[in-house]
Nucleic acid binder design. Structure first.
Lengths: 201, 201
DNA sequence: TCAAAACGTTAACAAAAGATAACGAATTTC
DNA sequence: GAAATTCGTTATCTTTTGTTAACGTTTTGA
């Protein structure tokens, strides 16, 4: 993936929230970098401050925590999704989680400093602020729904729903990561799968 | 609680995120209403669009879903916290949940239309946008942490943590609501409480 | 004020999930 | 291309949770 079409993808993503003039885009793109992240490499590591926010233009990453020496995967970002350890990025405190590339990936990054400068930019400030609000709102809604699922649904229901809504991206993820995502063990997910198989068979 | 000091509380809350001149506050307060919500009355009902966002100035509310005829409590807002059925408010779609007063409450409200007007207001627009972003980010972080707890912790750990961080507000809430909040049944929470009692005794 | 409803706990049993280990298959790595 | 690792499933056993029902207590509301 060449840098120019990567940047173009970022522009398309941004303009889904806030339209830009060519001049504004010119100014904004100044603050962006196009980076590659090889499989298994880290976008963020626990204990370090996450200094950027990015858009996955190609590839996929997983978010995970380490508890009692075990990795627990909590989330994924695929093409056309933002990624960051949001709390760390927003509050400038050390991240509690790792973000690691599941595949060779291409990411368009905006550093914390770059974002600050873009927000102070006469031309861009208002639109950056608006983009930030809409992005935060978007994830707020996603998280709200996920919490609701934890409270109102059984693991089996959560998995069934995920199968319906998850799309093909699901098949790129190892089962035991999905189990973590659902809040259960891999062994338990395997049993749920067998139960569902029998019903639908 | 008189309306003026209720509004003053809203200003203080707002200025924790974005400072205002007296003139700006004058303009903003124009869009606000001070409402009372008697115990058991609804701030929002499932199926209806949530048309406002508010600040709890006095009292407390609970958020709940109804599934298979059962109420499942997912969240609470106490004094000095915002409340809204965010997804419904932001996307103008019917709410999936109820919000009900746990106590007689006083709420400073901003309607969707009021917010829009405030955002278009020459004087206020930028600051409203910024307040919206910071508020969304605040809840984003809260939700992120709650999801992490579901994934990485047992119900017992979640309850222990809640006891430490929850403060006195916890004692105003019936146990079975807390059980729902933790994603378990009231019976299960009762057992967890007994286990913890025995350990600390 | 008094009956009704709501609440928290406990018991008994069923169902589900966690922990651990084993196994072959697939994938990775050198 | 061979050895090592990872992965998904299954089995066994233990622990936890869910379900239902009962009970005394507190709170609510007419």
């Amino acid at each position: 993936m060449d840098p120019l079409s990567a940047l173009q993808k970022f522009r398309e993503y941004f303009e889904r929230y806030v339209p830009l003039t060519d001049e504004e885009w010119q100014a904004l793109s100044h603050y962006l970098t196009v980076d590659t992240l090889k499989k298994k490499k880290f976008y963020v590591e626990a204990g370090k401050v996450c200094d950027h926010i990015g858009l996955v233009v190609k590839g996929a990453v997983r978010y995970y925590h380490v508890k009692d020496g075990e990795e627990i995967t909590g989330y994924f970002s695929f093409e056309d999704e933002m990624l960051s350890s949001y709390k760390s990025f927003l509050t400038r405190t050390p991240a509690a989680n790792y973000i690691q590339a599941l595949e060779d990936s291409v990411i368009v990054n905006l550093s914390h400093k770059g974002l600050q400068q873009a927000c102070m930019n006469e031309l861009l400030g208002f639109k950056m602020e608006r983009f930030g609000r809409l992005t935060a709102e978007h994830y707020l809604i996603c998280y709200e729904e996920r919490i609701t699922a934890f409270i109102t649904q059984s693991p089996e229901e959560r998995y069934s729903d995920l199968l319906q809504t998850g799309g093909e991206a699901l098949y790129r993820i190892p089962q035991h990561y999905i189990a973590n995502y659902l809040g259960i063990t891999p062994v338990s997910l395997s049993r749920i799968r067998r139960r569902i198989m029998k019903i639908s068979a």
